[in-house]
């Protein structure tokens, strides 16, 4: 396998310009929603609203204001996290989702049959259907560009280097330096999200520097794999099956003659 590659997104330098969203749509030839009709969400500057099968980058805007003059903006360019242990790969029944030689996660559109298990399996709500292809789609970390030595379209377009692309080890070092810098400047809320390889889902190959709790950004605090429930749920069903078997054993067995007579006297429903 080639070196693991990914994104480090430093949300503190995001200016909300959405160049990444545009570059992604443009490079990947993703269609507009509603035939390009403008749609206003009423939620800050965010009219994209969510990641989807046709929007693989989404800039979130969080307004934290006590009064019109006292507060701050949080902005974050969201994308597939290219989880080291990916819930989407785990649940896909067709093998459409693969891990590439760059340790990234890619959906093969010619294999996917649109069952949508991956949408429910992703702990971050990243995947959705692309209505044009009829398949599940998401960020590929520009697998096609990486193959020829180009960096992904979004990080290339980002004017502030909020989105940085590179080998994961190097990105982790850079993130650590930036974290220490912010903390020494008094931003004690600064924290890395998904940078720890021993953390949830084995770490994220697209990880973040946040300045508030993950939930504030619409991120789960402890992302988990769908398979965590496999054993408990299977045991639950097996117990259920055993109980049903026992109920059947008692109620459906051969009756003694007196019980049959009782049933025939009207103790049971009419035939």
């Amino acid at each position: 396998m080639a070196e693991a590659m990914g994104f480090f997104t430093d949300t503190t330098v995001c200016i909300g310009c959405k160049a990444c969203e545009v570059a992604c749509k443009s490079w990947n030839q993703l269609p507009a929603r509603e035939g390009g009709q403008p749609e206003m969400s009423g939620d800050s500057y965010d009219n994209t609203v969510q990641l989807s099968g046709t929007t693989w980058r989404h800039v979130k805007f969080i307004e934290q204001f006590d009064s019109p003059y006292n507060g701050r903006w949080l902005m974050m360019s969201d994308v597939c996290k290219h989880c080291v242990q990916a819930g989407c790969i785990e649940v896909c029944p067709t093998g459409a989702i693969i891990r590439t030689e760059f340790d990234t996660v890619v959906i093969q559109s010619d294999v996917c049959n649109g069952c949508r298990a991956c949408i429910a399996g992703c702990p971050f709500g990243v995947i959705d259907m692309n209505p044009v292809s009829g398949t599940a789609q998401k960020c590929t970390l520009c697998y096609d560009r990486m193959g020829v030595g180009l960096e992904p379209a979004c990080s290339k377009a980002c004017p502030t280097d909020s989105i940085q692309f590179g080998p994961i080890d190097e990105l982790r070092r850079r993130a650590q330096t930036r974290l220490e810098q912010l903390q020494s400047q008094g931003e004690t809320r600064a924290q890395l999200y998904g940078a720890d390889p021993d953390g949830p889902v084995g770490g994220l190959n697209s990880f973040y520097l946040l300045v508030d709790e993950p939930e504030v950004y619409g991120l789960p605090s402890q992302p988990k794999l769908p398979s965590r429930n496999l054993a408990s749920s299977t045991v639950g069903s097996t117990i259920g099956a055993a109980v049903m078997g026992a109920v059947g054993l008692v109620t459906l067995r051969k009756r003694r003659a007196d019980e049959v007579a009782e049933a025939e006297r009207g103790g049971a429903p009419r035939a």
């Binding site: 496999l230 408990s232 749920s233 299977t234 045991v235 117990i239």
Partner: peptide, 17 residues
């Protein structure tokens, strides 16, 4: 239950139920 969705992935009882 083997997903990450509300209600479904929050209880081990769904298969039995």
């Amino acid at each position: 239950s083997v997903t990450n969705r509300p209600v479904w992935a929050d209880s081990p009882m769904l298969g039995a139920l």
